[in-house]
């Protein structure tokens, strides 16, 4: 195939000057494409190798050692898998944090994606005040970075007390009313946990809303026009046009939500303190190694499953 093409260009060139093409010009289309692909990828590739892969491998390497701060740098004592054995069987917190991170993921990620898609569709429709509401729903992207969580040392206890009395009163009131109305307690606690997590879900779903909105904007309106002319209902339009066209964005959101929940899990703090506060560098490295193995495994598995149903307009 590629040989054929080179022959073609060569013969067409031969008609004009009597020179043979050399170097770059002699390459086939596919090869040129590959070359430019490599050139454009270079900055990223350098960063990936130098500032990501090598440090990551070093982390795994550190996990096999008992690292201590010495006069000039670190001292290394090889301990093999002792660090891994310690964190998984002896350390009281690590296993619990690992399971908590998993629970968090299983609960939050589906809700986040569902809420984000729902809100994005709402915000994408034409209605008066749409710009205003969009402005509001993207504020969490700024909020989620934690600037607004004000922690003044003296005020913590004061705030906590105020919140507790208020929170207990209102929660107790609602629980009582609802349980008196005969709703089973399991369902009630589920509803309660959902309601109390609304703020969290909304504030962490800002990016996902943005991703979905940009995806929705990319859908050609003519598709909907055709569907309406053919007699599709709103629901059919959603199932047959919006969902397939937005499915690549669902994949993006899935990966983003997973990485976000994994990065924000409290286990990161445990690793941080183990490494930098208690100066157990090797043990901390082992903790991160195990955690990565888990999070990467789960994410790749889910991505693989979802990418089976993703639809690309061009392929």
């Amino acid at each position: 195939m590629s040989k054929n093409k080179t022959n073609n260009t060569a013969s067409s060139q031969a008609a004009m000057p009597a020179k043979k093409k050399r170097g770059y010009a002699a390459l086939s289309y596919t090869k040129k494409k590959g070359l430019w692909g490599f050139i454009l990828l270079c900055p990223w590739l350098i960063g990936f190798l130098g500032f990501f892969l090598i440090p990551l491998v070093q982390t795994f390497y550190y996990a096999l050692f008992d690292m201590r701060l010495a006069n000039n740098g670190f001292s290394f004592d090889f301990v093999g898998i002792e660090n891994f054995r310690y964190i998984l069987t002896v350390d009281p917190d690590y296993n619990q944090e690992l399971i908590a991170a998993l629970q968090d993921m299983a609960l939050n990620v589906p809700i986040q994606i569902f809420v984000a898609l729902f809100l994005a569709i709402m915000l994408n429709a034409k209605f008066p005040g749409r710009g205003f509401f969009r402005t509001i729903f993207f504020i969490p992207i700024i909020l989620s970075t934690g600037i607004l969580t004000i922690e003044v040392t003296g005020l913590e206890t004061f705030n906590l007390a105020a919140e507790e009395t208020e929170g207990v009163m209102s929660a107790a009131f609602f629980t009582e009313t609802l349980s008196n109305s005969g709703i089973p307690s399991e369902l009630l606690s589920m509803i309660q946990s959902f309601v109390s997590s609304i703020f969290e879900v909304i504030t962490t779903a800002g990016v996902q809303i943005l991703i979905f909105l940009s995806g929705l904007q990319g859908i050609s309106p003519s598709l909907y026009e055709v569907a309406k002319l053919e007699g599709c209902t709103q629901f059919e339009c959603f199932c047959k046009i919006t969902l397939p066209m937005i499915s690549p964005m669902i994949l993006v959101c899935l990966v983003y939500s997973l990485s976000d929940t994994f990065a924000k899990a409290e286990i990161s703090e445990l690793i941080d303190t183990t490494m930098f506060t208690s100066a157990q560098y090797g043990r901390g490295a082992a903790m991160s190694a195990v955690y990565f193995a888990m999070s990467v495994g789960i994410t790749l598995l889910l991505t693989l499953i979802v990418s089976k149903v993703v639809f690309y307009y061009d392929n």
Binding site: L56, T59, S259, S268, I271, F292, S295
Partner: peptide
């Protein structure tokens, strides 16, 4: 995808 998933804190020291 791998770089997205890995929290940056992991490579802090290195």
């Amino acid at each position: 995808v791998f770089t997205i998933i890995v929290p940056p804190q992991s490579m802090m020291l290195a």
